[in-house]
Amino acid sequence: MEIIRFADIRPQPWRNGGGVTRELASHPKVASEQDGAWDWRVSIADVSKAGDFSEFPGMERVITIIDGELMLLTVDGSEHPLEKYRPFRFSGEAASSATLPTGDVRDLNVIAREGAFKGYTSIVEISKKRPHPVFEGQLAVLLEGKASVLPGAAEGEDPATGEAEELSRYDAVVGSDVRSPEISGRGFVAVISIDAV
């Protein structure tokens, strides 16, 4: 079971210097986040001032506000109000900029190379009674609340074997089809799926 601890990730400046981002995962892992050599990337960005977004030619983006109330995103001249927990998809090569009418925001970004991968973000409420599995090709990020994760049971095993690990805010659980980890608790997680096209 793999957990990516948000507290261990060093913030990196945006390409255009307008903010900072923390990369949770990318593929291939050897590719530098700054040179755009990856085929997909999942990151969390802090947006503290209005301005232009970095362009990612040949990529498609899904952005979700995960802290703060509202960001006004202008994409190719058209304005889109982005509210908390409502994913929005747009072209990475579009001219895009943001204003912050209600103050700073933090957003979750899924960027994938068009024609090779497709990224999806779903916001899921978790419960203690029904653990939420995280499958191969998925990443689950704790957005708010209190949660723990158990390694899933292999075939023939009793469920809920192994040691539960507590999750902190923005920690990410890497999915698996062998022993799919299961998240339980109270709160919300973002389930990110990266599918090969």
Rank of each mutant, 00 (worst) to 15 (best):
F56W: 01
P131R: 10
L108G: 07
T64Q: 00
D177Q: 15
T99P: 00
E93Y: 02
S122D: 13
L70W: 01
R86K: 12
L72T: 11
R179W: 04
D158L: 15
Q138S: 06
S97H: 13
A50V: 13
E114C: 10
M59D: 02
G156R: 12
D67C: 07
A98D: 03
L139C: 09
V124E: 03
A140W: 00
I63F: 07
F56T: 13
G152M: 06
G175D: 03
L70A: 08
G137S: 07
S148N: 15
P87C: 06
D67Q: 13
V124F: 00
L82C: 06
S176T: 13
F90N: 06
T161L: 14
G51V: 07
L142G: 02
G156Y: 03
L167S: 04
L143A: 06
V173T: 11
A160N: 15
A164W: 09
D52F: 11
L167V: 12
A94H: 05
K84N: 04
F117K: 04
E93S: 13
E166W: 13
L100Y: 00
H132K: 11
S54A: 09
Q138N: 04
P151D: 07
S168G: 15
Y120F: 12
V149F: 04
P133S: 10
G68H: 08
A147H: 02
V105G: 05
L70P: 00
T74Y: 04
Y85H: 08
P133H: 09
L150C: 14
T99M: 08
R106C: 10
G58A: 06
T102R: 14
K84W: 07
S48Q: 14
V149W: 01
R89P: 05
S127P: 00
G119H: 02
L72F: 09
R130F: 11
P101W: 04
E166V: 15
G51P: 05
H132Y: 10
D107N: 08
S176A: 14
L70Q: 06
L150H: 13
R61Y: 00
M59C: 09
N109K: 07
F88S: 08
G175I: 10
I63R: 01
T99N: 03
P57W: 00
R61G: 05
K49M: 14
F135I: 13
A164F: 09
L73T: 05
G145K: 02
S176G: 14
P151M: 10
T74G: 07
L100M: 04
I66M: 02
P101N: 08
V149S: 04
N109Q: 04
V174W: 01
S54H: 07
V141G: 06
D158I: 15
S54Q: 06
L82F: 02
V75W: 01
Y85R: 08
E55M: 14
V134E: 00
K49W: 01
P101C: 11
E163Y: 11
R61M: 03
R113F: 00
S176I: 11
R106M: 07
G68M: 05
P151R: 11
I63V: 12
I111D: 03
I66W: 00
T121Y: 02
F56A: 11
V178D: 12
F117W: 02
R169E: 14
K128N: 10
S148A: 15
I66K: 01
G162F: 05
A116R: 12
A140K: 05
G156E: 08
L167P: 08
V105F: 03
